[in-house]
Write a protein that binds this DNA or RNA. Structure first.
Lengths: 153, 153
DNA sequence: TCACATTTAATTGTTCGCAATTGAATGTGC
DNA sequence: GCACATTCAATTGCGAACAATTAAATGTGA
């Protein structure tokens, strides 16, 4: 009886939840990044936006949102803070006045050099080999994409 | 030259970041949980607290924080909202007046039954076998624990 | 052309998440 | 027993994250 009760509870045990593993790992990453990003004057979500812009500059807010799975409610104030920090410039597109184009300032471009040491520090903190991390990353991305597919239906 | 530049940029590419995989997977989980937890009147972090309490009742706030890696700045207002929703009761410990003990109300206990269908729905959404999920969960937890170990040093 | 739908950002309000500080209770070393 | 440090929760302030709404620009069909 007691065993049956326990068995029935297994799916509700915290330690059995992959979602909590992911949730708590995300927070752990955030805490490791914090001191590294403090030196760049960035928060972690701001760092993600800068990664997108360092790959391609002058993109619409919407494209950044699709890349990072974030909406304008999150990005508009975040980008205003990056603009206040002189890292980006926000301008309305002339072809389509609905779009806001995000461009790096020279300071925003220059920050990329200071950011190059960050991934190495994270790799060291993870205490993993690169192939291990790549394999894990691919599994997690595949899971994320399956979850996102369910949401869209 | 161009190839060398590209190679140097690889560590900064968004799609190569395991942290972004974890970050975006956590948000994807949150979005899948949202409609399920709405029916229980819980947010995802509140659901995590309830999972802890359904395992063991009457625990100090601090213990919940250690379990979930959250501090009083997050938990105090969250628990006040759960108390306002009549799911928990907060009482100062008589042995140690610094501690606040969190106990389930009858409604809080009863909610466990309504929550039993949640893990099944998540499993379906993840479109994975249980052994696959368990393996992934263990890898992610191991990574999280290594990251947390670095923070504590 | 004109009514209507769609797209895009911005805004508002609520809830996390955390750093930093405060204040009360408890533990300690002399 | 008393000064001192430690522990614990609460508070404040800021930056996400997202739902819901608004408003402006653009696209579409009759």
């Amino acid at each position: 009886m007691a065993r049956k009760q326990l068995a029935a509870d297994q799916p509700l045990r915290l330690d059995n939840q992959i979602c909590f593993a992911v949730y708590s790992a995300a927070h752990a990453f955030n805490r490791v990044y914090k001191p590294l990003l403090d030196r760049l004057g960035l928060t972690y979500p701001q760092y993600l936006v800068m990664l997108v812009l360092w790959e391609r500059d002058g993109v619409p807010l919407k494209d950044i949102g699709e890349r990072l799975f974030l909406d304008s409610g999150t990005l508009t104030p975040l980008l205003k803070r990056l603009e206040a920090a002189q890292l980006v410039k926000r301008t309305r597109s002339t072809e389509d006045e609905r779009q806001v184009l995000i461009a790096l300032t020279p300071q925003g471009q220059a920050l990329k050099d200071k950011a190059r040491s960050v991934p190495q520090s994270i790799l060291a903190a993870s205490d993993c080999t690169v192939p291990e991390l790549v394999a894990m990353k691919n599994e997690i991305v595949a899971l994320r994409d399956r979850l996102n597919a369910v949401i869209g239906e």
